[in-house]
């Protein structure tokens, strides 16, 4: 929801980045305020996922220009784990499997690490068990998730739910959901979207990175951005997503080039 005079959570200016020497982001601008839900859409290869990984601090990408301020501080001054503790959360498109590491232990470690950073009390295993089971209800997860290895043998939907469960636990300031709808059947999509909606509030911001409009039927964005060739070329309201759904992405690029040409 858009709140007047809401504080800026994320301010991206002219962000340029490369992977293995190939330029992926070419001057990306984006401003996200508290309470807002943004959707970043765009064709494959437009740089959407790269952008989310750069915000989280993945070492494969090199930032070559521009700036990112998160809650008033330079995001690039923080190591990936420091960003997470400060409230940047990335729900992965492909959550990785960690064989042998029990989900409940992993979840408790991450929860306690972040809590400690925020000057709050850690939870012992019993307290945490109560806490996490309550959160799991939100996502209609069965308690046996806790006893399995992290993401190992999880279906696509289970992995995504496990991601949103962590979002619920860690209470981030900025949640980036990278293609969270991919690989979800309609029921799972509804559950995950419902979870995200309940987590959205006036103090946090959500950035949905998605290829398709269908997620946006469930999580209604305040802004829709179209990304192409490493930058945002069009911004609109939720109706833009519907237009993209019916017309595809090509017209946005054509329109953008025409405007750019006129300005030049």
């Amino acid at each position: 929801m858009i709140y007047p005079d809401s504080k800026i959570v994320l301010e991206v200016r002219g962000l340029c980045a490369t992977v293995n020497g190939t330029e992926i982001l070419k001057g990306l601008d984006l401003t996200v305020r508290r309470g807002e839900v943004h959707a970043i859409m765009g064709p494959n290869g437009s740089g959407k996922s790269t952008f989310s990984k750069i915000l989280a601090g993945h070492s494969a990408y090199e930032v070559t220009g521009g700036s990112v301020m998160f809650e008033g501080q330079n995001l690039f001054d923080l190591a990936p784990e420091e960003r997470a503790r400060a409230g940047v959360f990335l729900a992965f498109q492909y959550p990785i499997e960690i064989p042998g590491v029990i989900n409940s232990q992993f979840l408790r470690l991450t929860y306690n690490t972040v809590q400690t950073h925020r000057g709050k009390e850690e939870l012992d295993p019993l307290e945490f068990d109560d806490y996490v089971r309550e959160k799991m209800k939100l996502l209609e997860m069965s308690p046996d998730f806790l006893e399995r290895s992290v993401n190992e043998g999880f279906s696509g939907g289970e992995k995504k739910r496990n991601e949103i469960l962590q979002m619920a636990m860690l209470d981030p300031r900025l949640a980036i959901l990278d293609e969270t709808d991919s690989g979800l059947d309609i029921d799972a999509l509804r559950i995950v979207a419902n979870g995200v909606n309940q987590l959205a509030n006036k103090d946090n911001a959500i950035v949905l990175v998605t290829h398709y409009q269908r997620l946006l039927n469930y999580i209604v964005p305040d802004y829709v951005h179209v990304m192409e060739a490493g930058r945002i070329i069009k911004t609109g309201g939720k109706e833009l997503a519907l237009e993209l759904e019916s017309r595809g992405y090509d017209w946005v690029g054509v329109e953008h080039k025409a405007v750019a040409g006129a300005v030049a």
């Binding site: 993945h58 784990e81 992965f92 990785i96 029990i102 991450t110 972040v114």
Partner: peptide, 26 residues
């Protein structure tokens, strides 16, 4: 893998604690 460690880092857990947890799980 780097990607496992990145996953831990994204949840606030540094590499040292992550390795310890993976190894102990193993």
């Amino acid at each position: 893998g780097e990607d496992q460690l990145f996953y831990f880092a994204q949840r606030g857990i540094d590499a040292e604690a992550a390795v310890s947890m993976i190894i102990n799980g193993f």
